[in-house]
C-alpha cells in the first residue's frame, strides 16, 4: 500500500515516524511531494491508500486540501498534521472524514499508533500487512 505525504519540510523530520510505519505495516511504500497539484493528480490517477497532509504547503491549509481532494476522489483516506487541540480539530474537520490527526512533529510512537489504526481499518477490508508486526 502507498502512503503519500505532502510536506514542505525536510523528510528528515519524519524519519522515525516513517520507520514506525514500515515496521508495523511491512509492505508500505512512502512517497513524498510538496504541493497540492501532485496530491490532486495522484488521488485522481493512482490513488494511494492514505495521504498525510502537512501544514505549510504553499497553496493553503491541509483541511482546505482535504476539501479539494474530496471533490476529486472521496474514497481517499486523509491524515492531517495539525497544531490544533483535539476539540478544535474535530470542529474544524467535521464532516471531512479525517482518518486521524498527527502532531506537528510526529514521533516513532505516533507512527506505531497510526500504523495500527491503519492496519485495523484496512484489515476490515481484507488488507493485511505482509508480515506480522511487532507485538
Amino acid at each position: 500500500m502507498q502512503i503519500l505525504m505532502a510536506t514542505n519540510r525536510s523528510e528528515d523530520i519524519f524519519t522515525r515516524f516513517c520507520e514506525a510505519l514500515r515496521q508495523e505495516m511491512g509492505n508500505v511504500e512512502l512517497l513524498f511531494t510538496n504541493n497540492w497539484t501532485n496530491v490532486l493528480a495522484a488521488v485522481k490517477v493512482m490513488p494511494p491508500g492514505f495521504v498525510i497532509l502537512d501544514q505549510g504547503l504553499p497553496e493553503g491549509e491541509p483541511l482546505d486540501l482535504v476539501r479539494k481532494l474530496m471533490s476529486v476522489n472521496a474514497a481517499v483516506n486523509c491524515i492531517v498534521i495539525t497544531d490544533l487541540d483535539e476539540e478544535s480539530f474535530h470542529e474544524a474537520g467535521e464532516g471531512l472524514g479525517i482518518f486521524a490527526p498527527l502532531p506537528v512533529e510526529p514521533s516513532f510512537e505516533d507512527g506505531v499508533a497510526l500504523a495500527r489504526s491503519v492496519n485495523q481499518f484496512m484489515g476490515a477490508r481484507g488488507w493485511l500487512p505482509l508480515h506480522d508486526p511487532e507485538p
Binding site: R67, M70, S71, N73, A74, A75, E94, G95, L96, G97
Partner: peptide
C-alpha cells in the same frame, strides 16, 4: 445530515 466526504462519495 451528512458530511462533505460522504456527499462527494455519493455524487461520485
Amino acid at each position: 445530515g451528512m458530511g462533505l466526504r460522504p456527499l462527494m462519495g455519493f455524487q461520485q
